[in-house]
Design a binder for these strands. Structure first.
Lengths: 95, 95
DNA sequence: GGGTTACTTTCCATGATGGAAAGTATGGTC
DNA sequence: GACCATACTTTCCATCATGGAAAGTAACCC
């Protein structure tokens, strides 16, 4: 059976990493709005992903506001690809 | 964001339902071996799926041994299809 | 009737997840 | 340069999910 990465599989984090895979980076606030979770929850998911080296965050200023940008690392992208490959192996038999 | 069905999303149950989607029914023992979990764990996942109407079990005798066969219901198949559609929406942006 | 088999249920421990609230840091304002 | 507001971050706490071991149950075979 294909191996699912539990760090990536949890719905909230799967949404974070798939969102990030499509862009070079995303704002914290944008992710929070997309996932519809509280600050604390997003922050904790991001730091779990960062601890695994899957994600990197960068702080800066944009239009007079402090912002945190989150991006997938190459490690994270590799882990995502593997996870997605495993998922596809499971779901490709459906339909 | 696409809606993931938590009952189906958990790795163990995702493996159960995707396995079942490819066959008309599967033996309890076969599923247990495929998932590499204990009797109790499989039994609990199956009954969670059965409580939701996603799965049905049938008991009988085969070659002098009692066996339990598990099958997806049409409700379960529909839920799986929807879950898989949601998953695909998330992961299709990868690669 | 009894033993064996094939689950099922109970018990318990551990870890994940989520929000609220408190904490921290830093840019903007005056 | 002090102060305030903002943008997260961390702590606290409650709840739920998950897993295995062990006890329980039922049915088949003898």
């Amino acid at each position: 059976m294909p191996e699912l990465d539990p760090l990536i599989h949890a719905p909230a984090r799967l949404q974070v990493v798939t969102t990030l895979s499509a862009v070079s980076e995303a704002e914290f606030a944008t992710l929070r709005a997309a996932l519809e979770v509280s600050d604390s929850v997003l922050s904790k998911h991001i730091s779990a992903l960062a601890d695994a080296g899957y994600v990197r965050s960068r702080k800066g200023v944009q239009a007079g506001r402090r912002t945190t940008w989150i991006a997938l690392t190459s490690t994270g992208r590799k882990a995502l690809r593997e996870h997605v490959a495993a998922l596809r192996q499971l779901i490709d038999v459906v339909d």
